[in-house]
Design a protein around this nucleic acid. Sequence first.
DNA 1: GAACTAAGAGTATCTTAGCCT
DNA 2: AGGCTAAGATACTCTTAGTTC
Lengths: 110, 110
Amino acid sequence: MEKFGDRLKRLRQNKKLYQKDLAQKLNISKSAIGMYERNEREPSFELLTKISDYFDVSISYLVDGKEHKKEEDQGDLFFFDMKGLTEEEIDDIKRHIDYVKWKAKQDRGE
Amino acid sequence: MEKFGDRLKRLRQNKKLYQKDLAQKLNISKSAIGMYERNEREPSFELLTKISDYFDVSISYLVDGKEHKKEEDQGDLFFFDMKGLTEEEIDDIKRHIDYVKWKAKQDRGE
DNA sequence: GAACTAAGAGTATCTTAGCCT
DNA sequence: AGGCTAAGATACTCTTAGTTC
């Protein structure tokens, strides 16, 4: 199951930063970043807020991976916020999802 | 400034519970609840998630008081059915979405 | 170079028991 | 009864220094 560290790592890598770089931004040691990403430590609320601000994601997303409240989240249904994206970019995502689904079927010999 | 403990206290009182009652629900000591409410301690992610589930509020609300998502934003929400996909395949999709979002920002000059 | 590991020091947290109102 | 405080024990976190790839 995906945890905080996995999401932090993905966010960092999407920004093309090294652990050292992010550590500087947040005023902590690079070793601490590594520990978070390996899910060996959990940051304080204060640092959590800094991370949330820096990557512009919600604290809910960081901590439990859910951007929204429970009622909206059910079973195999996933929701994504496409705010700020153009039609083309959203289509890009849709095509990728269709491709992954198609490939999943192939892999299982359906 | 209002903090986590203040919100926890309010949530508890709204449910007409004593610290002892909430402590039982969460399987911790009543003293710990008191310390949270007085902002003397911060709970682990695991407990934070339990609290979020129990009171049916987001973790963002608990930690920074911001409910982040509003009704008006629902238009940007897209739902996808991931039934039959493995965790790896879903992660693949998540990474792609993160990448598209990241690239969109780059294209518009940070 | 980038990321991971180890180790020690320093903090934070949790529970129990007792105290206040 | 309900909430707060003190205390010690436990557990966690952070940094530095060294290691691996």
